[in-house]
């Protein structure tokens, strides 16, 4: 049996190595919500679902299974705040639970990496899904210290919801998980054209052909700019990185003047639950450095149980 209300925190690459603010926010948020967050020692890259799966699918499964094994040895479910990590770990876990042949194959190769054996005893969760369905918009209210006043452009990212047959979380064409959850936080979701499309970073395209990636992103950004949100919110550090570096690239190469803050779901929720804006690490980001959350205190922090 896995431990209740306890998660092994899978870090991945971009969050700990580029946006530590998301990491500190996630820890703060989950602990305030009453979960225990354990570090996953010796975890590696998930490895990224677009790039490494494209090179060698078997090795991709083996490396992912190794990460899952670390959590299995801890007897806890995995939590991640990255769509890419979720995409890889959840998909491999799902696949190996159903496919006995591949499980044997993967376990055979796992021996070479160390003392690991994939059993399939845990689940992989994304923080967005834990917030959206377990804590829920009905349960978050009691934890809130303040509400923000903001018009938010929500970007789901691709691998959180798709493929729907594997994830089974929400519709891919018109999801409402994040919109519903953010309502009690005071964030008003604004609709824009092609809201559910890709940011253009995934699948190794950002590394393979940066210009192509930026062309896809340029359209996305134009659509977001048309509705003038206060900030862009995403549950994925890779989309986060694309939105940050992308705005910078467009400003330098296409004569635009974008300065939209990019905020991870964890950062917003942690802020609303009483974390200092400074601790969310927004001041370290490239875009929207001067942005200060417009918020309204609803109760003193000490009162929060």
């Amino acid at each position: 049996m896995v431990k209740e209300k306890t998660f092994a925190f899978f870090l991945g690459c971009i969050m700990p190595n580029r946006y530590p603010g998301i990491e500190s926010s996630t820890k703060f948020m989950m602990e305030k919500l009453g979960y225990t967050i354990l570090p996953m020692e010796r975890a590696s890259c998930c490895p990224a679902p677009g790039v490494f799966r494209s090179f060698n699918k078997v090795d991709w499964m083996v490396a992912a299974a190794r990460n899952i094994c670390i959590a299995e040895q801890m007897d806890t479910d995995i939590i991640t705040v990255c769509n890419g990590c979720f995409g890889t770990l959840q998909e491999v876990d799902h696949h190996l639970k159903e496919n006995e042949d591949h499980k044997v194959l993967v376990n055979e190769k796992l021996k070479k990496l160390g003392d690991y054996e994939y059993k399939g005893s845990i689940n992989v969760r994304h923080a967005a899904e834990v917030l959206g369905y377990e804590v829920g918009p009905w349960g978050i209210e009691e934890f809130l210290v303040r509400k923000v006043k903001a018009r938010v452009a929500i970007h789901y990212g691709c691998h959180l919801l798709k493929p729907v047959s594997v994830r089974g979380l929400d519709s891919a064409e018109k999801p409402s998980m994040l919109e519903d959850f953010l309502e009690p936080l005071g964030a008003e979701s604004v609709d824009f054209v092609e809201k559910y499309t890709c940011c253009g970073a995934g699948g190794g395209v950002k590394a393979f052909d940066g210009n192509a990636s930026m062309t896809i992103f340029e359209e996305k950004m134009k659509n977001i700019d048309a509705v003038k949100p206060d900030f862009i919110l995403s549950p994925c550090p890779f989309c986060h990185l694309q939105f940050e570096t992308g705005q910078d690239w467009l400003n330098k190469n296409k004569g635009t003047n974008y300065d939209y803050p990019v905020i991870h779901l964890s950062q917003l929720v942690a802020y609303c639950m009483g974390m200092d804006q400074k601790q969310t690490g927004l001041q370290f980001q490239m875009m929207g450095k001067d942005y200060i959350f417009q918020s309204e205190e609803i109760k003193q922090e000490e009162e929060v149980s």
Partner: peptide
């Protein structure tokens, strides 16, 4: 490094400022 995006010095600094370990507990 075990990561597709390895850590850099500036992030190490920021991690310390945010009260995190300088290096994440990864491979």
């Amino acid at each position: 490094t075990g990561h597709a995006v390895p850590i850099n010095d500036i992030t190490k600094e920021r991690r310390k400022e945010l009260g995190l370990d300088e290096l994440p507990p990864t491979l």
